[in-house]
């Protein structure tokens, strides 16, 4: 085995192994949320004036673990039931970006750096609020032809435990493959990049931030595992690493496909561009203050 292939396979294996326990924990909790908490509860919490509903939706996301596979379709479903779209989407963005599992994983990946956990929380929270407020101000409403998620297909008589296991299996199938893809790309980036590349852009914070934002979009990592991959970019400025973790859960290639299938092309484009700008700006500000 060549040296590069040996290194790639070691890094790939390390990232997959490190991420899997957190991924399983996150999938289990998000499945519980998807099955146990009825839609009408979300509608009751969020069907209020947007000035209240958007922060409330974001706060719900902080408390409720959910992966993008679950929360984006839930946002569409909530909006169908009368919840302001901006509030519904705020929840969909906040849950994968801010939930306790993500923060736990970030703390584990950045051991001895609690400021990184705080910075991730603050920057993600602010970015979600900004996106929600902008969507409300612009009056964005997706066309009424949203796709449905597999979780909705379960007949009501199915036993709850079975539905829970089925939801967990579905999410695991989706996210495990994506984690493997992200780890493969991240390991390749580490191996293929010339030795001097990361140290070179490390001196240019603006460039490093843009590179990491781009990587977050391309790699499309699960939010419960992205911290472990972010932590591997040890030479980059902390703000650039923070940007990677804030951008990824809000906008990446996989999410763009989900946004489009759930909200239509125009709304997806708007959400994606808004989320990217908000995530980068909030990371910059928070990174400057906290890190």
């Amino acid at each position: 085995m060549s040296a590069d292939l040996q290194t790639w396979s070691t890094l790939f294996t390390a990232m997959v192994l490190q991420a899997m326990p957190f991924l399983v924990l996150g999938v289990a909790l998000s499945s519980i949320v998807a099955v146990v908490i009825p839609d009408r509860w979300w509608a009751w919490v969020l069907r209020r004036h947007p000035a209240v509903a958007i922060p409330a939706a974001t706060a719900c996301g902080v408390l409720v673990p959910g992966c993008e596979c679950t929360t984006v379709p839930v946002a569409g479903r909530l909006a169908e039931r009368g919840v302001p779209f901006a509030a519904a989407l705020s929840f969909a963005l906040a849950s994968p970006a801010l939930n306790p599992i993500v923060m736990l994983a970030t703390a584990a990946a950045f051991r001895g750096q609690p400021e990184m956990v705080l910075a991730r929380f603050l920057a993600s929270f602010a970015a979600v609020l900004v996106v929600g407020a902008y969507l409300y101000a612009l009056g964005v409403q997706p066309p009424p032809r949203w796709g449905r998620h597999e979780h909705d297909h379960d007949p009501p008589h199915r036993r709850r435990a079975l539905r829970l296991a089925a939801a967990a299996q579905h999410d695991l199938l989706h996210t495990t493959g994506l984690v493997a893809l992200g780890a493969a790309i991240a390991a390749m980036v580490r191996v293929v990049l010339p030795d001097g590349f990361l140290p070179a852009i490390a001196d240019n914070t603006a460039l490093a931030i843009l590179v990491m934002a781009g990587l977050a979009i391309v790699m499309a990592l699960c939010s419960e595992s992205d911290a472990f991959i972010a932590a591997s970019f040890v030479l980059l400025p902390p703000t650039a690493v923070l940007t990677f973790m804030v951008v990824g859960p809000l906008v990446d290639l996989r999410l763009m496909i989900m946004y489009r299938s759930n909200f239509g092309t125009k709304a997806a484009g708007l959400i994606g561009s808004l989320a990217l700008v908000a995530a980068v700006l909030c990371s910059l500000v928070v990174g400057r203050v906290v890190l």
């Binding site: 790939f12 294996t13 997959v16 597999e150 297909h153 079975l162 296991a165 089925a166 299996q169 579905h170 199938l173 989706h174 495990t176 493959g177 994506l178 493997a180 893809l181 780890a183 493969a184």
Partner: peptide, 17 residues
């Protein structure tokens, strides 16, 4: 015991892992 509604293609990557 559990029905799989739509098995994603990405599962091939999990198998590779």
């Amino acid at each position: 015991a559990l029905p799989i509604h739509h098995a994603p293609r990405s599962i091939v990557l999990a198998l590779a892992a």
